[in-house]
Amino acid sequence: MKRTLQVLNELERDGVIERYAIGGAMGATFYVEPLLTFDLDVFVILPQSASSLLSLVPLYEALRARGYTEEGECVLIEGVPVQFLPAYNALLDEALREARETSYEEVPTRVVRAEQLIAICLQTGRDKDRERVRIFREQAEVDMNYLAGVLQRHGLERKWKQWTP
């Protein structure tokens, strides 16, 4: 995983991606007990293309050129299947902008803040997201004022109330 994160940093340095942050179950694991996952979900801001369409093709091509192959929805980077998810809405954009700088075995990286991970769960709305919100509330240090702002900005207050009676 150390080498995987180094590759992500190289992609950012080379301008293949503008910015990345770890999300999904591994992002959640940063704040709560370890959660079983087989993919590393990585949110990315892609450089503006001429067509202004969100396309992962240039990223996949850059990875192929580095010798990394696709496996289903993921790209296998140094032994870790990585799923890239382009920021497709305002919440993900904000999550990437405000992601927390950290390091993994001395390699700098970024993880989406707990509050935005909760908001993404609310927005996605699957059963496993609901369970994840429960685990966040139980175990993570959540800045409730900051969370309230995120929920308000992205119209998720009602869902939060439904899920946290």
């Binding site: 080498r3 087989f38 140094e78 032994g79 299947p81």
Partner: peptide
């Protein structure tokens, strides 16, 4: 179900 266990021992540059 096809799954892959992560390899944490990849070479480090």
């Amino acid at each position: 179900i096809k799954v892959r266990v992560w390899n944490l021992d990849s070479r480090v540059a």
